[in-house]
Design a protein around this nucleic acid. Structure first.
Lengths: 345, 345
DNA sequence: TCGAAATATGGAACCGTTTCCATATATCCC
DNA sequence: GGGATATATGGAAACGGTTCCATATTTCGA
């Protein structure tokens, strides 16, 4: 299955390659007669121009790179939906890479994107690159890329890059305040990944709320969830089945919430009643079903759309004013944060 | 940000372009001394070879295309996770396109894939292409593509193409039989999209089960779900709130199930008890939480992995024996299919 | 009617690789 | 030591487009 080339078409139409190129791109001068003849030949002969040749010649590609850490995570699926829709209307191709939350793959992927000469990259880093050598590595990888880059959801420590983020600190604080408001005094957290800034920020927000009310921070009420359902489940089970457990939890994300809920249900704990909770991000199907579970709501698909728009702006005007987009989180209280029993103290 | 070329490296190292190319690809003869010198130059100077140039020269690309109908659907997110992991280990790039279940975009996307000169395509069609003109259109689009193609989940009517599928008919039949087994006699269906073969097959399987037991097929017990949560919700609400409703439903997929459950919950119907049901595919978070909802289980991620493997096999040996892979569906009965009241007849 | 400007077209260089081929040198076996 | 063979290397021709430039023709205004 050999492909016809622009030269073949030119020969068939009895014109020069340049003319065929002009017809294809609707650029420059071409007489109506010639245009029609060339178009007829193309239609009859199944000609598909090679993107590689075009990209090489034009010294630019028609693709943007998308790097996500977990393709299976519904959060990123929804983000991707937003991204792909904007890409489609802008006639851009998407090269998708999945880091699996592994730093080494992250770095390798950026190198791949560079080889592909993408016009820009939307990037959710696998880790926060906190340690100096790692930071240096990611920094040079991004510099070598040499094209606009937009971070999505996760910042990189000590390296300011534009992106679409959330107010993780504030939202976590507000959620925790809502628990306090509801009467809880012994409050725990199903914490996220401390290797990620968003994990640490949500943790800080949680602590801040305790501070504001002079409540003590108890290390034993911290469940390591790691933004992972399985880990959150196991560790929640441990704390919840012990004698001394908090009356409420702030849960750092949706995956943690599922793990936590699984443990709670397994122990026949009632929510609310035995235990109150609020989680960061909605719980997909559960929320669709009006399951009375309180959460911090974000427009996830919108974040994808906005990331792509920001990237396009940066691609067009090479020096767009530095602008983070911070998406608001709206606290949606459906009852799971409440306390059935009055506080005992 | 100009990129260095192989020629620049060659000049710096005092060798020919061909030699640099040999070093990069570890092909042909290169003396150890020369190799080291070239590698040193490359390391020092940040050289990233252009994929476009390589592809053009080699007359083949390093990418495969993935066409999915809904990036936001968790089913495809999980499939994509499987696909991307295999692609990663095979050092292939993924070009992702999202048809949004629209036929026209489907066709346009295949054309894009052709321009990209992908090595192969994993393709979930937006529709079944049942009408002759549409069938002709998709047929020529695929022929023009001229590379191996693997269908995923959805066949194309009257055009046999290899792919990774499920036994939709048999699984739907067995699920419905399980409802009958549980004592139900008035059984409805929340049907899928009749524009899709999988929608029709699941419908047929449902009818077959009724037939096997001499139960009448009642058109008024059919809820049009269209594999869409919102539509399934609205139409379920209509039937469920009426006076004459079935005691059980076979639900054609996960999105339909969410819509159906939302309606049932809203009407305070208890499952099981007031109503029994089984759905095709698991309900993500709900299933994770051991929600007692019966479903037909498939290894979704595995389907993605298998599709990619099949594609790779076809790419390597151009004429791999025609082989569909049919993934089994396992019926997982957790109670929602049961009947609390004994049948009245 | 003439010259400038607009329109139309094709040749050829170029984009950055790979790969074929020719040539040169090193190695080896008898 | 000499011819066959293995090793090493670079020049040059692809690959399939785009675009600059030169040239030819047409249009148009004064």
């Amino acid at each position: 299955m050999k492909h016809l080339t622009i030269g073949d078409i030119a020969k068939l139409a009895g014109v020069g390659k340049a003319t065929v190129s002009r017809v294809l791109n609707e650029s420059g001068y071409v007489s109506a007669k010639t245009r029609e003849r060339v178009e007829a030949i193309i239609a009859k002969n199944t000609f598909t121009p090679s993107a590689a040749a075009r990209n090489l010649s034009r010294q630019e590609s028609d693709t943007v790179g998308v790097v996500i850490p977990e393709a299976g995570n519904s959060f990123f699926a929804e983000v991707l939906d937003g991204i792909s829709n904007v890409a489609d209307t802008s006639d851009l191709r998407l090269i998708l890479c999945n880091s699996g939350n592994m730093m080494e793959r992250d770095l390798k992927i950026l190198h791949i994107m560079s080889q592909q000469r993408v016009k820009g990259v939307i990037y959710t880093p696998a880790v926060a690159y906190s340690s100096p050598p790692n930071l240096a590595a990611i920094k040079t990888a991004i510099e070598r890329l040499g094209v606009p880059l937009v971070l999505l959801d996760r910042p990189i420590d000590n390296l300011h890059l534009d992106g679409v983020f959330s107010d993780n600190f504030g939202a976590a604080r507000d959620a925790t305040l809502a628990l306090i408001q509801a009467g809880h005094r012994k409050i725990g957290i199903v914490a996220g990944d401390p290797n990620l800034t968003i994990g640490r920020e949500r943790f800080r927000g949680f602590q801040e709320a305790l501070n504001l009310h002079g409540l003590p921070f108890e290390k034993r009420y911290v469940v390591k969830g790691m933004f992972n359902t399985e880990i959150a489940y196991k560790n929640s089970l441990k704390l919840l089945s012990g004698g001394d457990r908090p009356s409420a939890f702030f849960i750092a994300n949706n995956l943690n919430a599922i793990g936590f809920l699984k443990a709670a249900f397994e122990l026949k704990l009632k929510i609310p009643g035995d235990i109150g909770c609020i989680s960061f991000d909605r719980l997909d199907y559960l929320t669709d079903l009006n399951f009375p579970f309180s959460y911090l709501d974000r427009d996830v698909r919108g974040m994808g759309v906005e990331a792509m728009r920001l990237l396009l702006a940066k691609i067009e005007r090479q020096h767009v004013a530095r602008g983070d987009v911070v998406f608001p989180s709206k606290l949606v209280l459906l009852g799971s944060e409440t306390m059935t029993d009055l506080p005992t103290e």
